[in-house]
Design a protein around this nucleic acid. Structure first.
Lengths: 219, 219
DNA sequence: CCGGTCTGTCACCAATCGGTGAGTAACAGT
DNA sequence: ACTGTTACTCACCGATTGGTGACAGACCGG
């Protein structure tokens, strides 16, 4: 992919000639980052490499080394970009319902997280990457993701206090783990543990089951 | 790796010379399959390829094509071998406790599955593979795994009937999803959703949280 | 106008990948 | 002992990978 501007020029002139790309480091850096994110989201981490990113960004891989210090730096940039995930996912109201109890809150958060993950292929790929490898790259990415998720949870929690006598951290980890694996398995193979997850009806079943699970522990 | 017999000869003679491997197709086939399983379990699916398997098996990759019809056939053989997972994991008694209710059963099954997955690196890699890729290879492997898991569940269930009014399939899918993701995340990074999972104490917390989750839905 | 810096391109490297065709050595049957 | 089959090895293929050094052209300050 060429710079947006360069593409525009090409389309205007209709020239088949290379028509020289614009010298704009900022734009190129952005194009590389965008290409990397799209590539990771669409193809997964399997074929995520310098060559593939450069190919998709329409520039030489040398520029990735220069501007990002190689793939590692680029991955780190993706991680930093993940910080924006928080503010994109914060609804202003509470959906018209009052969150009186911790159970209300967790039910709402679970469903929101389920929905958000279903609609975010990049985040899914990152989660899958996390459980498949343990390189430095992934560690940093994982760190950024959990940090973003933590921020999101904090913002949403408000002033509600968790119940006593329950290991909230462990229980919530299990709940979020179930959501993540459910969505990942569905995205990969259309089912999870024999449960089909294709059409909206299937997902409704999963959502009510999730509600039941949450309500079971948090009343 | 050479044939077991060839290794024995090598060790006896102490020869540094190549000392010709034994011509035993059956043994070679077994060596290849074993090498493939170990490689997948130890290194993960990332570097799982014809060359790597042949290198580890100590034979030429040509033999993998001949005996298994390439990597696909070899993966299929691994899948078929997964059928043995069932009988390896069936305890004879119920651990000294009576399983009177469906809740009793599911609590026990959850904990057993958690334990089994924690101690089975090959199975973990396969699960991680399933949620990361969607090739034919993985599909078949996934099929074999879910079939084995289904068999295991059937054997363990006995004659207990699930409660009415609950979408058992969906709820159980969520429960098993939570276990799988928990174990995968722990194996990869030592934590899951911020919850540390390193020493036995951590795992006990997770286990009690899991029990609480199960008991919450199934009483 | 000239020299240096910045942006981008290209050619090349060794290593590895999956895959194949040809050859060699050990065995079994006669 | 000769023959054919089986088990196995080796050398090579084209493609792709991550990585580097050299070069060309646009831009800017003097």
């Amino acid at each position: 992919m060429l710079n947006e501007t360069a593409v525009a020029v090409l389309e205007q002139t209709g020239a088949a000639e290379p028509e020289k790309r614009i010298r704009d480091r900022g734009a190129t850096e952005r194009a590389i980052l965008k290409a990397a994110k799209n590539l990771l989201a669409e193809e997964g981490f399997q074929n995520f490499g310098i060559n593939a990113v450069a190919r998709r960004a329409g520039c030489d891989k040398q520029l990735i080394y220069r501007y990002y210090g190689g793939l590692d730096g680029l991955v780190e940039a993706i991680g930093a970009d993940l910080g924006n995930w928080v503010k994109d996912r914060i609804p202003e109201d509470t959906g018209g319902m009052f969150l009186l109890t911790y159970g209300d809150l967790m039910e709402r958060l679970s469903l929101l997280f389920l929905e958000a993950l279903r609609e975010d292929p990049l985040m899914r790929r990152i989660v899958a990457w996390e459980v498949s490898e343990n390189t430095e790259q992934v560690k940093r990415l994982s760190e950024a993701r959990s940090k973003a998720l933590g921020q999101w949870l904090d913002r949403m929690r408000g002033s509600l206090t968790p119940p006593k006598g329950v290991d909230v951290a462990a229980v919530n980890a299990l709940i979020f783990a179930s959501i993540q694996h459910l969505v990942l398995a569905a995205a990969a193979g259309g089912q999870c543990a024999g449960l089909l997850l294709k059409n909206g009806k299937d997902w409704e079943k999963a959502a009510t089951a999730l509600k039941r699970l949450v309500r079971g522990v948090y009343g």
